[in-house]
Write a protein that binds this DNA or RNA. Structure first.
Lengths: 219, 219
DNA sequence: CGCTGTATCTACCGGTGAGTAACCTTACGC
DNA sequence: GCGTAAGGTTACTCACCGGTAGATACAGCG
């Protein structure tokens, strides 16, 4: 028996604070995405992060603070991705198309981020909901600007059947829910998903059942 | 001093089991809708129900069972309301219109039911999510049937840009999200909400910005 | 090779809340 | 009336988890 006196399981190597913080945040996003805010335990986060609990409290504060950090980081990442995808100098429908593709691309690549932002943060009231609200409002404004500019260019005034913000909210909601639906139907590609939505919201059922199709114009 | 020996604060009057069960379920829906599954405490449910905790366990089982009962009852109520609103012998767009109005009418009258079904049940994994999935799937099938029948009547085959189920999912999602948005913008009437959505999904942005408007035909 | 500060850990506390055992109380049938 | 079972309660246990105090190891400098 080589009594190799391995004292503790193992002690984490000393690392600069910035690196540890990133590791902890990554672990937290993963754990929160799986269990939700309340069911997630700080013990599990610390275990996944490969670091002991007091480190988390020392670096990122209490559970609530930790969750807030997660939301903010992921929301920033996502907005950044969508903004980067939009090309400002193309027609409104193509802007929407690129935005949608960027969005679904992000969800595909960052499933956990999306779960935290959409499924978890919304339900826990308090400081979290308002944080997500900022994200959604930003998205709605982005879309709303598109719609209103497209509409007013045609001289369309606001009327009962047309509220820029309302429609934008519905659109953003449709995109979100389709992303949710996607989680359980992953055999569809992100491009196809974006295409469905584009056809629905741009053409509408009425045109669709007549056999019309919307397709992206050349880049 | 009139020593009126009021023994305990008060003891609940004896009531038949069915009545108590309804009271408890009502209380549970209310509490769950406010705090979510995890933050809700059985103590609060019992307090709101005006009954002591062991009664809940005796009648409706553990916390998980109680929540399941809530979801099932509210889901049934909602489906029932929507089904009752749909008139089978009118054109597809009018069926959709009536369905949407019934849906938003239900949300308006049963805010708490909606909160439990949409915001709470989804986030807590396990048995709950699947229960809500049944509801959503039923809704999607309802809409999908409408769309596909409308499409196939025109001889429209399934193709990349047109998936009955996908579109129905997007539509249901849009309706859900708009209902959510509504919670924070209650100054809009349910009819206006349904009208927005109807215009969006039936006509599409393309037609909307051209100034077209969809309006319900006479009953 | 010690000294020191900071990174990291072990080991605990205390609150909260699910679930239960044992007891009381009233309506109702006979 | 009175027995009894269903309705109802009090008062507890126990596990889990957020948060922390205080000990420990390690890098870098004199």
């Amino acid at each position: 028996m080589t009594e190799d006196v391995r004292r503790s399981p193992e002690r984490a190597k000393r690392l600069p604070r910035a690196v540890r913080e990133k590791q902890i945040l990554d672990a937290a996003v993963s754990v929160f995405s799986r269990h939700g805010y309340h069911s997630a335990s700080m013990d599990e986060v610390s275990e996944v992060a490969g670091v002991s609990k007091p480190m988390i409290y020392s670096y990122l504060g209490a559970k609530e603070d930790l969750f807030l950090h997660c939301i903010r980081r992921e929301a920033d990442r996502m907005l950044e991705a969508v903004r980067a995808g939009i090309k400002p100098d193309v027609p409104p429908d193509m802007q929407l198309w690129h935005g949608l593709r960027a969005f679904y691309g992000f969800v595909a690549d960052h499933r956990e981020s999306w779960l935290v932002l959409h499924r978890q943060a919304l339900t826990v009231g308090g400081p979290f909901a308002s944080e997500v609200d900022v994200l959604r409002t930003t998205a709605i404004e982005l879309v709303s600007g598109l719609v209103v500019s497209a509409g007013s260019r045609k001289g369309l005034a606001e009327q009962a059947e047309f509220s820029g913000e309302g429609l934008a909210a519905a659109l953003v909601g449709a995109a979100e829910s389709l992303a949710d639906w996607w989680l359980d139907h992953s055999d569809v590609s992100d491009a196809v998903l974006a295409s469905w939505l584009m056809n629905l919201i741009w053409l509408g059922f009425n045109d669709l059942v007549e056999g019309e199709v919307w397709r992206p114009t050349e880049p």
